[in-house]
């Protein structure tokens, strides 16, 4: 699929006003979806870990958070590249943009906490993920309202979505990549946990 996707994208028709730049959407949109999917998985797994204490959920949340940062970074880099051409500016304080940026920052904070927080940081990170989830509607409402009372001249154009086949194809590819990376990452953490358990049993 990775081999075929570029060919499909290349053969897709040029969008009338934006030309070549529009093709960035075949990367941008799927990665944004994976970004969202990862955030949802991380949030749900964190809540379950916080109240049930199942370490498998914790490992899943960690793996998902790393993917959120990865796909979020792809989204946030490809977005401005397109926006520069389409809107004439690199960045707009638009609802989606701001909410994505905040979500991405929470995920980065989550990883920083896991990495540098020392022992006990797994629970704290789960709490952070829970708060980050609860925060999304507030960011959304506040930015939305802020922008509507301060309208900008730069109207966000409606997004072209009818470039069907290559888009869905790359979305499928990204989904498979997401699942693959998630499974690899969870397995790595499982093996690490098993090694830790073995060390502990040798000491005993």
């Amino acid at each position: 699929m990775f081999a075929t996707a570029p060919i499909l994208i290349a053969s897709a028709p040029y969008e009338s006003t934006m030309g070549l730049v529009q093709k960035i959407f075949y990367v941008h949109l799927p990665s944004a979806w994976m970004f969202l999917l990862g955030a949802i998985i991380c949030g749900i797994a964190s809540v379950r870990y916080l109240f049930k204490g199942d370490p498998r959920q914790d490992r899943l949340a960690w793996a998902a958070a790393e993917l959120v940062v990865l796909f979020g970074a792809i989204t946030l880099i490809t977005g401005p590249l397109w926006a520069r051409k389409a809107w004439g500016v690199w960045w707009q304080w638009d609802v989606r943009l701001t909410a994505s940026l905040m979500g991405w920052m929470v995920a980065v904070a989550y990883l920083l906490l896991r990495k540098y927080g020392g022992p006990g940081s797994d629970k704290l990170a789960a709490g952070l993920a829970l708060f980050g989830m609860a925060n999304v509607p507030f960011v959304y409402i506040s930015v939305n309202y802020w922008r509507t009372i301060h309208p900008t001249t730069n109207v966000v154009p409606t997004l072209p979505t009818s470039f069907g086949v290559p888009l869905w194809f790359s979305a499928g590819t990204f989904l498979l990549l997401f699942i693959l990376l998630l499974r690899l990452r969870v397995r790595l953490e499982e093996q690490r946990a098993r090694v830790d358990a073995l060390y502990l049993s040798m000491d005993a």
Binding site: M102, V106, A109, L112, L128, F131, N135, V139, S142
Partner: peptide, 10 residues
């Protein structure tokens, strides 16, 4: 601050 500021943005 790293954890607090993204959450308190609203």
């Amino acid at each position: 601050p790293v954890l607090l500021y993204p959450i308190t943005v609203p």
